[in-house]
Nucleic acid binder design. Structure first.
Length: 315
DNA sequence: GATCCGTGGTA
DNA sequence: TTACCAAGGAT
C-alpha cells in the first residue's frame, strides 16, 4: 500500500484491509473483486491484484521467503519492497532505496546526475551506507531511520540541514547544493482527454454500473457507463448515442480528474427511469445508490456518481 | 530506458 | 492554480 502512497492516506485503508483479510491465507482465498473493492480509492489498482497473487504464491510456497532474491520473485515485489521486507521483517543487512533514500543519498554524495539515469549509482551509494557496523547490526532501524530522515529533515524543498545529524559529512550541504538535489529530468507535459459518463437511477434507487476491462487503466474496476476517453471533446448529440438506456438525459455537471499521465475532463449526464429492463442491464449490473460507497468505484467514478446524484436530487 | 499506472496533500 | 511528491512495479 505504501508504494507511492503516503502513510496518512494508507492508514485507514490498512486497518480496514487487515481486519477484512487478517492472514495471508485469508487474503489468498479471497475473491479478487473483494480485494479490489477494499482498495477502491487508493489508486494504482495493479498493486491490489499483485498483492492478492502474492498471497497465493506465499501460501503455495508454504511461507514467506526470507531472502531478497526470494522476495523479489513474488508478484508486486520489486527491488525496493524486497529489500524493505528483508531488512525490516528478517533483519537482512540491506538498504531499501525509496524516494527518501534516493534524496538523502544524492545530497550526501552531491550526485549531480539527474534521475532516473542516476538510479543505479544512487542504489550503490545507498548500499554502501551499510559499511557502517552499527547500521549493519540493526538493518530494520537503519532503513526506517533513513526513511524518517528523508521525510522530516532531509525534505524535498527546504531541508533542515541545521538539525541534521549528517550535516558535517554531507557533500551536498558543503557545496550548497542540497536543496536542489536530486536533479530530475524534465517531465513530459500532461495531455487532456475528454469523456462522457451516464448516471441513471430507477424508482427503487438502483444505479446502472458496469465493469471495466481486465487490463489497462482502472483495470477490472467499476464505472458508470460512458464513452471512451479521447483527445477531443464530445458534442452532446455525439455523446448521447453512447447512452446506456433511452431516457430524458440532462447535463448534470462536469468533473475534472488528474491521472499520472493525463488530465481527464468528464461531462456527466443524469436521468431517472421508472424501472430497468433486462435489455438495459445487458452490459452491466444494478446497485442500490446507498451501496455505491462500498463498491469498487475508483475516485473518478465516485466524483461522477456524486455529480449525477446531487443533480437528480436538486432537479 | 520509456511508458503506463491513481490519488490526495502541500507550497 | 500549477507543480511536485509520496516506504514503486510491470511491461
Amino acid at each position: 500500500m505504501l508504494q507511492q502512497t503516503t502513510v496518512k492516506a494508507v492508514g485507514p485503508y490498512y486497518l480496514r484491509f487487515v481486519e477484512k483479510f487478517p492472514t495471508v491465507q485469508a487474503l489468498a482465498r479471497a475473491e479478487r473483486d473483494d480485494v479490489l473493492a477494499a482498495w477502491a480509492g487508493l489508486g494504482y489498482y495493479s498493486r491490489a491484484r499483485n498483492l492478492h497473487a502474492c498471497a497465493q504464491a506465499v501460501v503455495a510456497l508454504g511461507g514467506f521467503p526470507c531472502t531478497v532474491e526470494g522476495l523479489r520473485a513474488l508478484p508486486g515485489i520489486g527491488a525496493y519492497t524486497a529489500a524493505a521486507v528483508a531488512a525490516i521483517a528478517f533483519g537482512v543487512p540491506v538498504v531499501p532505496v525509496d524516494g527518501n533514500v534516493e534524496r538523502v543519498t544524492a545530497r550526501l554524495y552531491n550526485v549531480q546526475e539527474p534521475l532516473p539515469a542516476a538510479r543505479k549509482k544512487l542504489a550503490q551509494l545507498a548500499d554502501g551506507l551499510n559499511g557502517d557496523a552499527a547500521a549493519r547490526q540493526r538493518p530494520s532501524d537503519f532503513a526506517q531511520a533513513l526513511f524518517d530522515l528523508g521525510s522530516s529533515l532531509c525534505s524535498p524543498r527546504q531541508p533542515a540541514c541545521g538539525l541534521c545529524p549528517w550535516q558535517a559529512v554531507c557533500a551536498g550541504h558543503a557545496q550548497g547544493t542540497a536543496a536542489t538535489l536530486p536533479r530530475k529530468a524534465p517531465k513530459a507535459e500532461r495531455p487532456v482527454r475528454y469523456g462522457v459518463h451516464f448516471m441513471v437511477m430507477d424508482g427503487a434507487g438502483q444505479v446502472l454500473l458496469r465493469k471495466r476491462p481486465e487490463t489497462g487503466l482502472l483495470a477490472a474496476m467499476t464505472e458508470l457507463p460512458g464513452t471512451d476517453w479521447r483527445t477531443t471533446p464530445w458534442t452532446e448529440a455525439e455523446a448521447l448515442t453512447h447512452a446506456p438506456v433511452a431516457a430524458a438525459w440532462q447535463k448534470a455537471g462536469a468533473v475534472k480528474h488528474v491521472f499520472t499521465h493525463f488530465t481527464l475532463n468528464v461531462v456527466v449526464y443524469a436521468a431517472r427511469v421508472a424501472q430497468f429492463s433486462n435489455q438495459d442491464v445487458r452490459d452491466g449490473f444494478l446497485l442500490p445508490v446507498a451501496r455505491t460507497k462500498t463498491a469498487s468505484l475508483p475516485s473518478i467514478m465516485q466524483k461522477c456518481m456524486t455529480t449525477g446524484y446531487d443533480f437528480l436530487h436538486r432537479a
